[in-house]
Design a protein around this nucleic acid. Structure first.
Lengths: 134, 134
DNA sequence: CTCGGTGCAAAATATTTGCACATTA
DNA sequence: TAATGTGCAAATATTTTGCACCGAG
């Protein structure tokens, strides 16, 4: 079904870059960084490759809020988003896929997956006292 | 802290409209409908009011995928998104806030909430057989 | 040589904002 | 009348796409 995929230096660079990052950069951040190695790369190429890679399941596309972010780690894991600084970090926690069963209980369609992330204030911002008591 | 809020017919109409809908319309859909009553209303007004209302917690802003959607029901509940038709519907299920505790276990920041929704294929699309076995 | 991939620029989407005027309290 | 809200239009921000050329297999 899927067309044959040829390798490209740009795509390799995108994957390589994503793997070096623990945060989850946006297309624009990725663009800026790939540009260091390929000064003529275009944003269009970045988007095309990110779409291709996430369609193939090689990377994750996170559509949490504002611009989409990308994650090279496709293993089951969860994210935390700081309300103050907006940073997206990984959470170490046991899988919670049992919630799919809970959700399926009184639902007629088919539930394939859940998208779950947590929001709050990260350690760094808590210390800064940036948290103005909401 | 927050400035005094004055009432406006447009904002009232937006809230009233949202309450009549069980689905979760986008700003544009809301715009189209408010226009019936206020032909001169502008998209800017729609966005400003939706932002104001969701900031105050009077409505929910759902940033799931593509355009943001809005929900007049702010009670604890969960959503299901059909991969085929894109429709967002409510799920009847017991609260799963215990996952916040699970997430907090080995996390240093403060977790305030979880954003959780489910994806799959809705009953309608399953029947249509639109689900081309992925 | 043949497709898929790229760069570039323009277009499509989605959302925000400055400003002068209208409306609410 | 003093803010706040609105309409309109322009500006942002994000993502997609058409097209001619480049590069991998």
């Amino acid at each position: 079904m899927q067309p044959v995929i040829k390798r490209s230096k740009q795509r390799d660079a995108i994957v390589a870059f994503l793997m070096t990052r623990k945060d989850h950069p946006t297309a624009d951040t990725i663009y800026m960084n790939i540009k260091k190695e390929f000064p003529n790369v275009s944003l269009g190429t970045i988007y095309r490759n990110l779409a291709l890679l996430s369609d193939r399941g090689d990377i994750l596309k996170l559509s949490y809020d504002g611009a989409d972010r990308y994650d090279a780690c496709v293993d089951q894991h969860y994210h935390f988003i700081c309300k103050e600084c907006g940073e997206v970090t990984d959470l170490e926690m046991e899988p919670i896929d049992h919630i799919n069963t809970i959700a399926s209980a009184s639902f007629k369609g088919r539930i394939d997956e859940n998208v779950t992330y947590f929001r709050g204030v990260c350690e760094k911002c808590l210390k800064k006292g940036v948290d103005k008591a909401e």
